[in-house]
Write a protein that binds this DNA or RNA. Structure first.
Length: 1057
RNA sequence: GGGCCCGUGGCGGAACUGGCAGACGCGGCGGACUUAAAAUCCGCUUCCCGGUGACGGGAGUGGGGGUUCGAGCCCCCCCGGGCCCACCA
């Protein structure tokens, strides 16, 4: 114990670890499960989850404790409010960085990861976070990844039955086979399987038992949620692995920023696209940040349209089909399709290269296709100029009957739709640019009617009025009407508004405005010729017209169809929505096309060619067919290896393939299902991606030691299910916004599959989500925008930072913390200097939790002072004894009730900064009272023992150690136990309001005086009091009071002139 | 190019539903203590004008307009910044 009883860093660093061990001894953070000793079923549940960290060798960053302190405060508060609180922590420990570190150092990643975990745990525990450490686990623990593998087997053994529920439901593969056998289900390949060629999907088979076993197997595999697909993936040679779409940012790997190339590969895929609609529509019920919901919606990228089959005029040999299938959201423009484009990866391109037409420049085509296929994504993103080559093939436009050329171009993506489009250059900007580049024909089929209307107006307008004036007038009008929030019922009233407005402002010397009003009859005729009925429609037309005039190019606005008729259908004169309907009807009737919903979301590439991940519970027989491993044989552990270096190569070589003894085994040894025990098998040598472990950790926390299941049903349903006083899903999930699509989408997918299969009791894993903002740092920038490390800058005078070496002035900016800028803050250093309580308080006080904010080393002192002064208020610094008074100050009494209400309310809405501000205000008020008292009698305390008791309970979630120490010194720890197990203080609503309040009196909206009124004064009383005020009466002396607005408890406003 | 979010003192921010703009903290200035500095304590601190002064007047939440008795908050246009997506037919 330090000699003095002052609150110093030394004292904080003494009491904090001491209380941490005491709490651990008492087990106050242990939350029992239902059925366990000490579980109280009468309490409501609160499951509060932090995104678990990836334990890097660098240790904790200041960003980690931000979210963790926030959840710690909420959990302590909820616990004091009488909840059963589940607040766990663990480690997301498989992944690339550990492996790359292993490559550099030669130390096994398990070893470095365990060291990093120990360091992370020590750092987190030093903050005093109230995690239930008895539930801790890492994704690398064998008894954890055993269940990750188990879930993979469930995905492997499941399919999505699209007939169940609104958007399908997962079921077991056995049930599918039963339905095929019994004839209850049409026997065919999965029509939604992206990896199955179109011609196979259109077939159907009569009798299951008579089918060849290989065909049966292929059909079944096409339904599995985990399947092997050969498709174009993101190949990163530097990392030696393929990556998921979500892991590629701007054409570079998310980890490391290395270039990524597209490459066809045979890999494990998860059929997340089957759940696209569920993942989209279920977002509606979630309490998530709007930006994250939007990102997920956009990533899923639903679009409604049609698929249309174009006949290939003279198909090359060896094509699967003589039809070229396209997806379009604009089937109404089919008469405008003047050419077609297929992706360079499209099978038709290979077919034509093998069997070129007379018109094909095969050499040029081959060269282009190879160039396009091997182009890295970065290169692709750089130049968006259109490139392409004709295939020499032609297709027949089913609407016009015309032969149109088929091109290949890389602006058409292989992975979306069918990798082929009908190009309508008149109404799609990309097609327009391509058509211009290669001089392809453009055929207008949608006529923008407003262009005609404007031309009409220009023709009929008075000589000195041009269409531009008309447009300006309308622009004003749009603003006016929209601002009013009302929409004129018809255009006569619209016009009336316009006319009166023009007249009212018609003081222009040349009388021009007057004339504008006078042409209103013309407007009306023009507007009527547009045949629109609502104001919104009108506004849209106007904006489209303005765009069309300004931009040129393809017209994608509102209009009516022209040039669109054949012997079977005529779209002429129809609006776009009408034309879409008519086209679809005709397409479906003639069998050339049908309605189709497409998603941007692709299936999830699940194989990584790396070492440090979960092995797949899969083996291959000598035919190369995959077989699952028995559940009883899990976990499949990683073989020991010493060399983790990937070969930098264009061909993927899984690292585990080097472990030949492990790879080559027998069915019996591997516990493969359904194979002869002596059969030679090869283990899957890929590993799962880092995301696998984080997809279900929220489930494992509910029952982490369970050996019989990933979680026991009672524990799982209590913590995640719906109940009398609980809603389904994790009650609060806090973590970084960088996971908006990746982890959060994957975890939702797994959770939904497990829900469908009856293993979990909530449809969604995380009901409420919150993102903490990034903690940034200050940095300096030279005039040329280059950055200067902070230690190479000095302040010369006020707000005048200069670069030490050159003396050149630099500007202070806000940037991410980085080693190169030498502005990284190490949490251990801050704790040594101020203690954990100050650190916690500072990070919570910086600003709103979800906002990014710069770290300001100087400002930490403010929070340290707050704690120090609070301490001094209640503890005698000479003796260390509590300082109390017997008589409570009236105003402080009230303020404490108000503070109690404010702090509780602010915690509920995660506004910790204002909660702390309220406590500082209370401290300031108490200090002022103490000073007053000291003038009469030295050494007088401000607070009663009861008030300190309450104050410490308020402070406990924020500064748990200081609160406990004061609590202890008051003798309350011995009498009632730790402050953290006490009830949250209550407040008396009667104490919140004053009897009398001071309110402002305004004249014409400006504050001119103040009056004191009874708090419950009605508007009449307030008005009388206001008018009776001397100063107000004086100011109103020569004025007539027109109106008085009095708002109870707020203000009085007098309208007078 | 598209979407989402945000612009408030020297700085971080507060103002929860349209009702006293700038709570609280940092920094700064002045003072006390000290040989001195640090630490600590006290006072002031949006800007401009007037007054020795308690005070009075004016402007003010990126800019312009609108709605309202009243706008940081609602509506329209513009400017600036951030994040995400990006040839998805």
């Amino acid at each position: 114990m330090p000699d003095s009883h002052r609150y110093t860093a030394e004292l904080a660093n003494h009491i904090e670890p001491a209380w941490q061990s005491r709490w651990a001894e008492l087990g106050i953070d242990r939350q029992p499960n239902p059925g366990e000793e000490g579980f109280d079923a009468s309490k409501p549940r609160y499951y509060c989850l932090d995104m678990f960290p990836y334990p890097s060798g660098a240790g904790l960053h200041v960003g980690h404790p931000e979210g963790y302190t926030a959840t710690d405060i909420i959990c302590r508060y909820k616990r004091m409010k009488g909840f059963n609180v589940l607040h766990p922590m663990g480690w997301d420990a498989f992944g690339l960085p550990a492996e790359q570190y292993a490559i550099q150092t030669g130390v096994h990643p398990a070893e470095t990861t365990r060291t990093a975990i120990d360091n992370f745990r020590r750092q987190l525990q030093r903050f005093g976070f109230c995690y239930d450490w008895s539930r801790e686990f890492g994704t690398i623990d064998e008894d954890y990844y055993k269940w990750t593998q188990w879930i993979f087997l469930k995905l492997y053994d499941s399919w999505l039955d699209t007939d169940r529920g609104d958007h399908g439901a997962g079921r077991s593969i056995d049930e599918l086979i039963t339905e095929f056998e019994s004839g209850d289900r049409e026997i065919r390949f999965n029509p939604d399987a992206a990896e199955i060629p179109t011609h196979l999907k259109s077939q159907s088979y009569d009798d299951w038992s008579s089918l060849d076993a290989g065909v049966q197997r292929d059909i079944i595999d096409s339904y599995r949620l985990a399947y092997i697909g050969e498709q174009t993936v993101n190949w990163c040679p530097k990392l030696g692995t393929a990556l998921a779409n979500e892991e590629v940012i701007d054409g570079k790997s998310e980890r490391g920023g290395f270039p990524v190339f597209r490459k066809p590969l045979r890999q494990w895929m998860l059929r997340i696209t089957a759940y696209a609609e569920r993942l989209l529509f279920d977002l509606d019920g979630l309490d998530w940040p709007e930006s994250t919901l939007t990102q997920q919606r956009e990533w899923i990228g639903r679009s409604e349209g049609a698929e249309i089959d174009f006949e290939i005029a003279d198909p090359p040999m060896g094509v699967d089909s003589t039809l070229l299938r396209v997806f379009t959201t604009r089937p109404d423009t089919i008469f405008g399709a003047t050419y077609m484009v297929v992706a360079p990866e499209h099978p038709l391109v290979d077919a034509v290269l093998a069997d070129p037409r007379e018109t094909t420049d095969a050499a040029a085509l081959r060269e282009y296709v190879e160039w396009a296929r091997n182009r890295s994504d970065v290169e692709r993103l750089e130049g968006k100029e259109k490139t392409g080559k004709p295939t020499g093939l032609e297709a027949i436009n089913p609407a016009t009957g015309q032969r149109i050329p088929i091109w290949t171009a890389d602006y058409v993506l292989a992975g979306y739709g069918s990798g082929a489009i009908m190009a309508v250059p008149a109404h799609d900007q990309r097609d327009f640019e391509f058509a211009q580049e290669f001089e392809l024909p453009i055929r207008d089929v949608v006529y923008p009617v407003q262009v005609a209307a404007m031309a009409h107006f220009a023709a009929h307008a008075p000589d000195d009025t041009v269409a531009g004036d008309w447009r300006n007038a309308l622009a004003d009008l749009l603003g006016l009407v929209t601002a009013r929030g009302s929409t004129p019922a018809d255009f006569d009233s619209l016009l009336a508004v316009a006319t009166s407005r023009r007249r009212a402002s018609g003081n222009a010397p040349d009388g021009k405005a007057e004339r504008r009003g006078a042409i209103s009859g013309e407007w009306l005729d023009t507007v009527r010729s547009l045949e629109v009925e609502t104001f919104d429609e009108f506004a849209e037309l106007f904006r489209d017209a303005a765009y069309y005039e300004a931009e040129g190019g393809a017209f994608s606005g509102t209009g009516r169809l022209v040039n669109s008729s054949n012997t079977q259908v005529s779209l002429n004169g129809l609006t776009i929505p009408e034309a879409k309907g008519a086209t679809l009807k005709w397409l479906e009737h003639s069998g050339v096309g049908r309605r189709k919903i497409n998603h941007k979301l692709r299936d999830w590439l699940f194989s990584r060619q790396r070492y440090w991940g979960e092995p797949f519970p899969i083996v291959y027989d000598d035919q190369g067919r995959h077989h699952p491993v028995a559940e009883s044989a899990l976990p499949i552990t990683l073989p020991p290896m010493t060399d983790y270096k990937p070969e930098v190569s264009d061909e993927p070589k899984p690292l585990l393939a080097k472990a030949t003894d492990w790879i080559r085994t027998t069915a019996a040894d591997a516990h493969a299902v359904g194979l002869d025990p002596d059969a030679k098998v090869t283990r899957e040598s890929n590993t799962m991606p880092g995301w696998a472990g984080s997809c279900w950790y929220h489930l494992r926390y509910t029952d982490p030691a369970n050996n019989a299941a990933f979680a026991g049903p009672d524990a799982e349903s209590y913590w995640l299910g719906e109940g009398p006083n609980r809603e389904p899903g994790v009650d609060l999930y806090v973590g970084g916004a960088e996971h908006a699509v990746l982890h959060l989408l994957y975890a939702r997918f797994w959770h939904k599959v497990l829900y469908d299969l009856g293993y979990v009791s909530s449809n969604e894993p995380y009901r409420k989500l919150y993102h903490q903002g990034l903690i940034l740092s200050h940095a300096y920038q030279r005039a040329d925008k280059s950055l200067v490390p902070v230690d190479e800058v000095e302040e010369r005078g006020e707000n005048n930072p200069v670069e030490t070496a050159t003396g050149e002035p630099v500007t202070q900016i806000i940037a991410k913390m980085s080693k190169s800028l030498r502005n990284v803050v190490n949490p251990d250093d801050v704790i040594a200097e101020y203690g954990a309580d100050t650190f916690r308080l500072y990070e919570m006080y910086m600003g709103p939790l979800d906002q990014q904010k710069p770290w300001d080393t100087r400002a930490i002192g403010g929070m340290f002072r707050f704690l120090k002064e609070t301490w001094r208020l209640v503890i005698d610094e000479d003796t260390g004894a509590p300082r109390t008074t017997d008589t409570a100050d009236e105003s402080l009494k009230k303020l404490l009730h108000r503070t109690t209400e404010k702090v509780g309310g602010d915690i509920e809405r995660l506004a910790f900064n204002t909660a702390i501000a309220a406590m500082i205000e209370f401290k300031n008020a108490a200090q002022a009272i103490e000073k007053q008292a000291a003038e009469k009698q030295a050494g007088t305390a401000a607070l009663t023992a009861d008030q300190i008791d309450r104050l410490m309970r308020l402070l406990a979630p924020f500064a748990p150690h200081l609160a406990e120490e004061v609590w202890h010194r008051l003798g309350l720890f011995d009498a009632r136990g730790p402050v953290h197990t006490q009830a949250w203080p209550t407040f008396d609503p009667a104490m919140l309001a004053d009897d009398e309040i001071e309110i402002p009196v305004q004249i014409m909206g400006k504050v001119r005086g103040r009056i004191t009124i009874p708090a419950d004064a009605d508007t009449k009383t307030m008005e009388q009091l206001a008018l009776a005020d001397d100063r107000i009466a004086e100011l109103l002396a020569n004025k007539t009071v027109r109106k008085v607005i009095a708002v109870p408890k707020r203000m009085v406003n007098i309208v007078a002139n």
